[in-house]
Design a protein around this nucleic acid. Structure first.
Lengths: 357, 357
DNA sequence: GTTCTTGCCGAAACCGGTTTCGGGAACCAA
DNA sequence: TTGGTTCCCGAAACCGGTTTCGGCAAGAAC
């Protein structure tokens, strides 16, 4: 069953091939080999080729610590988790980490993870990681509107990439999913189904995405020829409990909405609860469409119609973008956004003919 | 608002104090300082004191890469996530990581995270991390019954600690929560409430905890003077869907249980659903007690009675145990277990007087 | 046929630590 | 006084890389 377990111990310390081995095998000196591998101009094309082929054959990989001591770079990406935000990132974390570490490892990088409770701890954590060379740059999850991390790194000229965008975008590289387009399309979809009173429950406004999604919702309403009802738009909902509370408020309105767009899946599940308590059937009496694509949504009753985000892909892209940033590419060239994928399931349906006017 | 952002850049490369600085300040040589700090016997107690005080004053910390190049150790802990297991670890991951990284950082260690899809990828990942000195040892989450990782590391003499226990415990250090005691107590609690037909839905039997919890349940039944009904014990349930399916089966039994013990909270939430579909009220018609302490349990209807696990504490303890293991302490001395904390909430109540014979 | 470039590589210093080796000073006994 | 220990510490090599510097040879310019 087990592939020969000895494989681990054998290669442990013994088998690592050093730059000295390479030099000896080629009849060159360490310095020549090093410069050949690093593309210095004073090495002949021929020699470079020989060296690189041999490196390939011997599966040579420079020991990152050894070069770090001179170059200061250790081929590792930093990720600092902030637990203050209402444990919101939970459902995404595993997939996201898998993506980041996969993306990193294909380029020979590793991932260093730390965590911080509050802002001053956060700064210390970043500084220590930099000082000790434990991270060459950082992935900043959950871009915020006024993001302390961004201003710090911008000033200090530390490479970083955002998961999410930034208005003041100087020096910022990022990957993001276009939640605003999803919100826009959600409204259009509902309008096509005949809905006109459409509510919107937005996520945490400290995060940058909230403003974008709100704009997307507003644009969608305009594009559908519907007029915007301020009383149907609520901000800062993050949890199912928020959703239940706010959902209840919306559904108890004299002229209640027939559909609700949620910026966050978990909130939508709370809205389900509010609807059930009022004996309204989600998907017929009330349409709900949300955003995230969490696992629980697929198993809710009815299954939640949503725009799904591939957090694994996000992690992988962020890793490669950060590596390129560390390599010196300008941040403006390192900005990617993708669309969320629409999953039409059971929580949306035609508008009820005439609810109760 | 922002604490002077310049703080990051200032200390960046400039301010690091090296062993050479220390030597100069003390009128000693590098080698003496190094040996003093590392406790060599050929340095006078007086000199050692002077050196260590100065190190304290100057906030000196050896650059881990620099020592790694000679010692092979880099003061970082490895954690490899396996995503094959049915995304089960999801709810715990954030807290767990926070604990590990906190525990690591108090000892001057950092955390390197990687992920693996399958077993051969897993081995490669471990090997690469070791070969490149990215990890001095590993935390192995979710101890399995027949654990490939354990046998590998045992043979290769790589330091590791388990989250969970192991029957073949040679060379194993671990931290674990005594789930078996929780299951035992759960049964006793239910028996005290008058229940006698008690079902048990266990977790994944590939994991080591499942056997333990099953034993705990059996012991609890015996200790309560109840006889064990094999048809009421089901194994290998991990998800809410599993819980709903198995719950349905148990509740449709001719002589159905009045209480169900679940080895996993998420499964219990599935049982809720099965009960609702049969118009049984959880907490009165059916008592449910589970294990984990996930957030959703507290907000279920009724709130789930459960044995809660502090995953953050677990992570922190595992980090310090591993560091001590790396430091050379024998694994037998590095085994800790703690009790889960009982949270009596709304899902348990007195046994119904006479259900239907 | 010199001299001046230019291309290419080796020698050696360096990074920040660790570890081996050897020897000076102090102490002891003879 | 001499010789042998013991206690300390400095000198230097080493780890695996990077980077500066200098020089040799071939080709170009005169």
């Amino acid at each position: 069953m087990a592939p020969n377990t000895a494989s681990l111990s054998n290669d442990r310390a013994a088998m690592r091939v050093t730059i000295g081995d390479m030099a000896a095998a080629l009849g060159l000196t360490k310095s020549t080999v090093s410069r050949a591998l690093n593309g210095y101009p004073d090495i002949s094309a021929n020699t470079k080729l020989r060296v690189k082929r041999m490196a390939e054959d011997l599966n040579y990989m420079p020991l990152s610590h050894a070069q770090a001591i001179k170059t200061g770079r250790t081929r590792s990406l930093g990720l600092v988790l902030q637990l203050s935000d209402h444990d919101a990132q939970r459902p995404f974390l595993a997939e996201f980490l898998a993506g980041v570490s996969a993306g990193a490892s294909t380029e020979g990088y590793t991932l260093t993870v730390a965590s911080a409770d509050n802002d001053i701890h956060l700064i210390d954590t970043f500084r220590n990681l930099l000082r000790d060379g434990k991270a060459d740059g950082f992935i900043l999850p959950r871009a915020m509107v006024d993001d302390l991390r961004v201003s710090m790194f911008r000033d200090a000229d530390v490479p970083f990439v955002l998961y999410g965008r930034q208005d003041n975008d100087t020096g910022c590289a990022w990957f993001d999913v276009r939640g605003e387009d999803a919100m826009h399309d959600a409204v259009r979809h509902l309008a096509d189904l005949g809905h006109s009173r459409i509510g919107f429950i937005n996520g945490g406004t400290i995060y940058n995405y909230a403003g974008l999604r709100r704009d997307g919702f507003v644009r969608g309403m305009a594009a559908s020829g519907l007029n915007f009802a301020p009383e149907l738009v609520i901000e800062d909902a993050m949890t199912p409990e928020d959703g239940a509370r706010i959902g209840a408020r919306l559904l108890d309105l004299p002229n209640r909405p027939t559909a609700i767009v949620c910026a966050v899946d978990r909130v939508a599940l709370g809205v389900y609860k509010a609807a059930e308590e009022r004996d309204m059937k989600v998907g017929t009496d009330l349409s709900v469409v949300a955003y995230d694509g969490i696992h629980e949504g697929a198993h809710a009753q009815p299954p939640l119609t949503t725009y799904s985000v591939d957090n694994r892909q996000a992690g992988a892209r962020l890793a490669t973008l950060l590596i390129r940033r560390i390599g010196g590419e300008p941040p403006e060239a390192l900005r990617e956004t993708v669309a969320a994928t629409f999953l039409e399931r059971g929580s949306t349906g035609p508008a009820p003919q005439s609810a109760h006017t």
